[in-house]
Amino acid sequence: MIDYALHFGFFALSLALLMNIWRAIKGPTDMDRILAVDTMVINLIAVIILYGIYEKTTLYFEAALLFAMFGFVSTVAYCKFILRGDVIE
């Protein structure tokens, strides 16, 4: 039963990632693109965790944690750049 749920989860998250890519390509403003990439990172963390359940290993949690950290830092850096024209002043 878990396998069916995992397959449904992979399908739904892939669809969500495609929607995010569409928003990142289309997005009228630059902030829309940043928001799309931030959401993409969060969805990708969910995919990595589901893949960890699928493979029955805890090996992928470090990857998920690193993804979460880099996603946060990159989003904040992008926003800081747009606000101030510089990342580190």
Partner: peptide
Amino acid sequence: LLISGLIVLGAIFALVGSYGML
């Protein structure tokens, strides 16, 4: 059942969030 329910719930939430963003 619990694990499958949580996975499906989480996937639906992620899908709805991305659909809303679109």
